[in-house]
Design a protein around this nucleic acid. Structure first.
Lengths: 153, 153
DNA sequence: CATATACCCATTGACGCCCATATATTCCCA
DNA sequence: TGGGAATATATGGGCGTCAATGGGTATATG
């Protein structure tokens, strides 16, 4: 499986370390399995993360913008300066920068939510509430969740 | 990671030295790890920096501008003639020329902002404000910051 | 000779690396 | 197929190393 799926709740220890769920570690390419990138989610009070490979794609995309345009600077600043890289130790643990923990209201536990090509980290209660809300919105708006899940490409 | 990412705020000591963030040092080629180039940002009151290898890329970008346009001369002059090289000492510190510090309003602290293939140095408060402004502009113009981060190739 | 800058050494706190344990999971064999 | 052993995962903690910072002294450069 090369996608981030399922959800997990892990503890943050005294040193601030938290285990990246094993199944998430396996999604990372064997090469850069000891480094991930984190950044603030744009729409929610959560942290998003993924492997460094993704960052290189983003860099390529930004590099294709007009170098002297304002957009270039805005994207470059908003993305590169906001992204942090974190090392994953041999036991699969990493540190969440203080600023990101504040942004997500994370203190002693982290809820990991697989999102396919990336994952989100939430303060557990808020995270669970968010998934409920998301599902409720889908049903309420009569989006056909069932179709979405069963249709073949 | 071979990109300048994240942001750091470091102090300038009595001798005018400031530490280049460790992760930035690692982006520089192992060969010329003791030398960086600095120049005034064209669009903002900040200093931009990168490894000497990046010069070629800058030259290429400028060459892609219309050779007979006013912009060509302006950029060419503004950047090349203003570039200064600085040595990074064994502890990873370097001196910021007085003129550049004045240009950026830097006094006792420097905020380093990763920008992918280069980085910017700001007076901390102005730098943080700039980041907020950049993000606001992108969101306001409905430029798809989210897509930039999450889309697949 | 005077000022600036490179080199060397020191300190402090953060972080990486290593080892340890408990629980959970998988595997293998009788 | 049941049960025990081997393995993996989440978690705890010791300790050495490195990064950021401070400062003394040699050296260079005009």
């Amino acid at each position: 499986m090369d996608l981030f799926v399922s959800k997990y709740i892990n503890k943050i220890d005294k040193k601030g370390r938290v285990s990246l769920p094993s199944s998430f570690r396996n999604v990372l390419p064997k090469a850069n399995r000891n480094e991930i990138i984190l950044y603030k989610s744009i729409k929610t009070p959560s942290i998003e993360g993924c492997g460094v490979g993704r960052l290189k794609e983003i860099a390529k995309r930004i590099n294709n913008l007009d170098f002297f345009s304002e957009d270039y600077d805005d994207f470059s600043t908003s993305i590169f300066s906001e992204i942090v890289t974190t090392n994953v130790d041999k036991e699969g643990r990493f540190l969440i920068p203080e600023e990101l923990k504040l942004y997500a209201g994370i203190k002693t536990e982290v809820a990991f939510f697989g999102q396919g090509h990336f994952f989100q980290m939430w303060e557990p209660k808020q995270g669970l509430k968010n998934t409920e809300d998301a599902r409720r919105r889908l049903l309420k708006e009569k989006k056909s969740l069932r179709m979405m899940l069963t249709q073949q490409k």
